[in-house]
Structure formats: structure tokens, C-alpha cells
Simulated assay, not measured.
Amino acid sequence: SFISSHGEDIKKVFINILLVADEMNLLGNTTFALDGCKLPSNASKEQSGTFKDLLKKKHTLEQKIQKIVEIHTVQDEKEQDKHDTEIYTTLPEKKQKAINKMNQKIQKIDTFLSNNEPKIGKRKKESQSNITDNESSKMKTGHGVIQGYNGQAMVDEKHQLIVAAQAFGKGQDHSLLEPMLDETAHTMASLGKGDSFIEGKTFIADTGYFSVENLEVVQQKKINAYIPDQNFRKRDIRFENKRRHVPNSDKKIFRDQFVFDKDKDVVICPAGQILLPSRGAIRKLSHYSYKTYHTTKAICDACLLRGKCLKSEKSRWRNYQVLVADDKPDVIRNMIDKIDSHEGRDMYSKRMGIVEPVFANIRTHKRLDKFTLRGQSKVTIQWLLFCIVHNLSKITNYGM
């Protein structure tokens, strides 16, 4: 009730606190870092599924009810034969309660299916819905899969104040960059910074936000962005000796121990065997084309290095892929060159120190371990409230 009736007021409080922070010169207003914090919501992931899955659950519940009734009917008939009289007994209270609960679940499923449409994902496939909170979604985290929301925060570098915050029912970050940039621009306009404040400012985000669409967005908005691709660490000379930190690295064979002979179009493995191009060797992905090489199953089975080379005993052979074509758009090439530069590496290294302590503070010290409300609008206000408390603590520590 409080959240529903005071949502807009809470947003105004968030803006007013940032105004106070800005007057105290606690905002740097030059460099910002964006990231998300995935938290469970007040919804059960067992209540999730496609419409086909939900219909299957309903059918299963109906079968369970039917089975309980059938078993009770058989027991009644046995009692009648035993006493040679008609005996009609009601279901035991425990079984009747179980049936009532299952009927309630069936009713919930029926109501949900009749009042909602299937969720269609980015790839035109149906995504899982949730009966309890259909705006939440299943998300992969470091602690397993949760049913929850992704709390996004745009953080100013100077004192880690949050300048924009919003919760989304999406586990992937790549579609959330543009709405968070727009939210940041709206906040700064409310602080009197002007409608074009974000132009020329530096924004840092991790690989989860890397996509052609996002790079085009920051280019259009004239933002100095640093968003690395998924392979940027492999190109970083500072990680050349990373293998020494890999457990049991002496018991594994790595890719760089293979030799590619471009003239003969073959690959030579550490055991001296020749890997030939596979049938239909060239495989085209979004912006790359790879050629795959491997030897035969018989050769790999007889190899003394098989245990080190293959990931699993069930693996048939070791594949080796060579990049044969690269048609990356200019926005990707430019960002890769930018990240691989000395300035880019230095700038991106600041990201973790800017945004990660914010989530540690909110989750550990402010003790937000789950969202207790349902619906994206209400969860966003709850997320804002915790961001407000975080910002107040920053003002107390650095502004007083």
C-alpha cells in the first residue's frame, strides 16, 4: 500500500537527495559505471513454465486428484463386501485438504492462462511465464537459478553515489543499457544539468552489455563508452601467464600447444598427429567464420595423451578451430581497438572499484537479499529505497 501510493514521491526523494549531494560537490559528473544485481523476488520458480508446461502441470494435478478418489472408492467397496451393507465414507480430512490445495492450484493455472498471453522472447520463441509474478523471470546467478529481478544501478565514480536505478525482469544485461542511459539522462536533467548532459561523458560497463545494438546506441548518443567484448582478456598481455593459476594445468593440453600449418591446411597436435579439415568445416557465426579440424576417433582412442587432451572420456576427438573470416561491423572493431589500448585497459579496470562496492554495501550492510514485492513497478521502488539509503550513507560519510 505504501509503495503503491507513494511511488512517485519516492522517485522525487531520490532526485532531491542527489541534488543535495551535487551541492556538496560529491558527484564527479564525468565517469559512470553500470552493472546489475540479480536478486530473488517474492515468486516461486516452481510456478514458472511455458503455457504448454503449465497445462501439463494442471493435467498432472487432475490425475493426482483422480487417483486419490479412485483409491478411496476401492477401499469403500472392500468395506461394503466385508460387511455386506452399503457404506459411504467421506475422504479423510488430510486427503481432502490435499485435494483442496490441488484444486486451488488448478484454479490459479486456469485463471492465469485465461488472463495472460504467452511471453515471446527475442528469438521468437516462447519464454517461461510465472503464475505468481509474471513480470519476474528466471535468471542464472553465481548461486544457481533464481526467479527474480535484475536491479540495475548507474554509479558515479567520485564517491560511488547511484545516479539512476531501475529493476527489470530480465536476466541478460545487453538489452538494459539504453533504458539505463535514458534514465541517467532524465535524472541529470532533473538536477538541472541539461538534456544533453550525457554527451561526451564516460560510461563503463562489462561484457554483458556488449552488442552491436548497444555500441550503435552509445555512438548515436555521443557517449565515450568502454564496453569490452567476451574475448578481451585473451588479448591482454597481462594475462599471458594465467595458466600458472589454473589447477592441475600440467595435466591438461591447451590450445596454444597445437600448431596450425596454413600452407598445408592442417593442424599438428602435441602428440604429432595431423588434424585435417572436417566435413563442412567452415561454420559461420554472427560476425565470424571458423574452420574446424580434427583427427579420427581411432587415433584419439590410441593416443597416450588422450586423458590430458580431451575434456571427457566420452569425447570422440579434439576439435581445433581457426578463424578464416572476420566481418565485424566498424562499431565492434573500434570498440575492440579502444579497449585494447593502454588507456582503454586502464579505464576499464576502474569499473569494479566503482560499481561492485555499491552492490556489496546494499546486499551485505543494508541486507537486501531478496525483493519482497511483486510487479516490476513496485520492485523498482523497493530497489530505489535501498539506493536512497546507500546514497544517504555516502552523504553522511563524505559530505558532513
Rank of each mutant, 00 (worst) to 15 (best):
G192S: 06
T184F: 09
H186K: 15
M188Y: 15
V217R: 09
M188R: 08
F197W: 13
E213T: 07
S196Y: 00
T184P: 00
E199P: 00
F197C: 03
F197T: 01
I204T: 12
T184R: 04
F203N: 04
L215M: 14
G194I: 02
I198Y: 04
F210I: 09
F210K: 08
T184K: 09
H186C: 11
V217N: 07
K193G: 06
T184I: 05
K201C: 00
F203T: 04
Y209L: 07
S196F: 01
S190N: 12
L215F: 15
V217G: 05
G192W: 13
T184E: 07
E199T: 01
S196Q: 02
N214E: 05
I204C: 14
A185S: 14
A185Y: 03
E183P: 01
A205N: 12
D195V: 03
D195I: 01
F210V: 11
E199D: 02
G192M: 08
T184N: 05
G200A: 02
K193R: 08
I204S: 12
L191N: 06
L215Y: 13
V217Y: 07
A185T: 08
D195G: 02
M188L: 15
I204H: 13
L191H: 11
A185M: 11
E216M: 07
G200V: 01
G192K: 09
E213S: 08
S196K: 12
A185L: 05
M188A: 08
T207H: 09
D195H: 02
D206F: 15
F203W: 10
L215Q: 14
T202N: 05
A189Y: 11
T207R: 11
A185C: 06
L191Q: 05
S196L: 04
T202Q: 06
I198R: 04
E216P: 02
K193F: 05
V217W: 03
T207A: 15
A189T: 10
T187Q: 13
T184A: 13
E199G: 00
G194M: 00
D206K: 10
